[in-house]
Nucleic acid binder design. Structure first.
Lengths: 351, 351
DNA sequence: TGTTAGCACTCACTCTCTCCGAGTGCTAAT
DNA sequence: ATTAGCACTCGGAGAGAGTGAGTGCTAACA
């Protein structure tokens, strides 16, 4: 990387990206030469810019305009600021404090996270609700609601719960229902929900004697519910503030795509394992995001990754700030959630 | 009303509103005279238009432009189309069919309702989740989750459930917790949740012997949860298709206001009792909605009103269509929900 | 007396043209 | 290797002119 571009080119490129992030306008050689950190004449800078254009780091909207950074330039830029990105202690404190005020419901904490994320960055934020796949089943309760339905409450060792309405087939007696419940608790407790869903529930289906089919359907819908994923999206309207979206039809298609909801899967999915991902422009699978960058980070409860969050902004977003905020937010959210969910002695570590 | 404006004026006014709803452009006398339903010369129409302007039904953006309807005109227009508004049987069938495909979870039905509402009208839709205030408590279960917390599951006679995580004060034994639960069930079952919340829970607090304060806090948070209201908003991006919002800053402030969430309270609140409400332009309390019209209708479960839904569009929205769709949707949703929630013999009527 | 034709006037829009300036690339001097 | 100088490019802002949809008034008409 360093051998690819000499120091002077690097400086110029960084300066261009910095400037373009700020102004959204093509950057010219004169503008750059006025900067304190570049002590070169416009002509020299022009030569360097010409080189950078040839190397694919800069683009020219039209002949008589300045240069704008290419995706390649952002890539390089991002890899350089990555370690530099850090919030001041004050800002970090602020985030932590605000998040901790809202500690009654998990959903509220997630909402507040999304709100702060978009509030601070001025971009669009998406925060995933924590999923339970890796949590271990503690027990399942079935609460009869009407004669035709019952509420299944799944309690995990991480303290999180999830409840689904199940259709109870009319032929099933409450005795039978109790038997099924205790069978489930006996056989499934202690296993990860993802395993319960994928292998154990199907196995169990076969064991159920009478009414096997309808019980299977019931267990199936319980299984489906574990997959259910929800997201909080905040700050979509922020995008309208950027000249990139001053064209209403662009804004429209972005918002529509956001509402469609498919974005979330693409954006948040493969974050598993990786701490932080930056996807710039066309690196995003979704063509609707080709002028956007998406930065994703995951958060944890008790060391186990349970969800992720992302910030979506124009490709010329303030990467440094967004990375810094996301890092801090991920830490804060992880600790707040861990505090909420693992408060009891028996709700401890997963591994 | 009829004596206020003679038939010819009424016809002209209606034609202007119709045309303006379609085109969003000021309507001129020549355009009107070309219509089949108005057989007058432009000059005559001009005279009538002049009168209508004086009477406050029409406005003129500038001297050499046509006329646009005033809020007063929309009011009159709406009161006239109100009974006319009706969907074809096909459309009604379509709505009902689509809604019934999604009958697993109440939340999904509400989402689908919102989606269809904005899909058909091309405006923004808000649908309130059904509230439980008027449902009667059947029983409460407390499921221990960790030593510090329990999940309270509230089951009502309408079959709907609601669950909240409660902090269980550390001093309370599981014996004590059981006692509290059975005390609650004994004393509160059969009452409306709104009464449970407002008068019965506070009374109960005083009766709890030991640990009164912390139990009270627990009951308090249970009570808070009954008030919790959620909404589904769909189609905000639709507004960008209308020339009214081709100004990005207007679109931006509308979307921001929508995200802030206060709108919902204002929009959906006082629908109680009234079947259908039309609020035009400045009739809305929220100044952000002064260029919008909001049509609200409530929906019921088993005859009892449990929520409402609204469509927000520009003041020149297609009132007839929106009213018709809302009426149909309210009926369909009411019947689907009633079917879902009241399916059991003992989950019947509330009154 | 209500309706219509005719006419002068208004005014937002669109189109064209020009001008301006920021920016480039090349060449020659340092 | 760097820089000053210069000719050239091209988008965008601004000024005018022309267009046309629309009005209001007046006078003629049925």
């Amino acid at each position: 990387m360093t051998q690819l571009l000499d120091v002077r080119k690097m400086n110029i490129l960084r300066a261009i990206v910095d400037d373009y992030i700020l102004t959204a306008a093509p950057v010219g050689s004169r503008t750059l030469s006025k900067r304190d950190d570049i002590e070169l004449s416009p002509a020299t800078i022009r030569n360097e810019m010409s080189d950078l254009t040839e190397l694919g780091f800069l683009e020219q909207p039209h002949t008589s305009a300045g240069r704008i950074p290419s995706e390649k330039a952002y890539r390089l830029y991002v890899s350089n600021i990555m370690d530099r990105a850090k919030l001041t202690d004050d800002e970090a404190e602020y985030i932590k404090a605000h998040l901790q005020r809202r500690v009654s419901e998990v959903g509220d904490v997630i909402k507040e996270t999304a709100r702060m994320l978009s509030g601070i960055t001025k971009y669009t934020s998406i925060v995933q609700m924590p999923h339970l796949k890796n949590a271990r089943l503690k027990h399942i309760s079935l609460i009869p609601v009407t004669t035709g339905s019952a509420l299944a409450v799944v309690v995990t060792n991480s303290g999180a719960t999830n409840s689904t309405m199940l259709n109870v087939p009319s032929g099933i007696t409450s005795d039978h229902l109790e038997k099924i419940t205790s069978l489930m608790n006996e056989r499934l407790a202690g296993y990860k929900l993802v395993d319960v869903q994928k292998t154990l529930l199907p196995m169990l289906r076969e064991e159920v004697g009478e009414q096997a089919d309808s019980v299977a359907a019931m267990l199936g819908s319980l299984s489906d519910d574990i997959d259910r994923q929800d997201y909080e999206v905040v700050g979509a309207a922020n995008m309208l503030d950027y000249p990139e979206y001053s064209d209403v039809s662009k804004a429209r298609s972005f918002l529509t795509e956001l509402e469609r909801g498919e974005i979330f899967k693409e954006v948040l999915s493969d974050g598993s394992g990786v701490e932080l991902t930056v996807r710039i422009g066309t690196e995003n699978d979704n063509p609707e995001l080709k002028d956007c960058s998406v930065i994703t980070i995951c958060y944890r409860v008790g060391g186990e990754q349970v969800g992720s969050m992302a910030v979506i902004g124009p490709t010329r977003m303030d990467y440094e700030k967004v990375v810094a905020v996301l890092k801090c937010m991920s830490e804060s959210l992880s600790s707040v959630l861990s505090g909420m969910l693992l408060s009891s002695p028996d709700g401890g570590r997963n591994e």
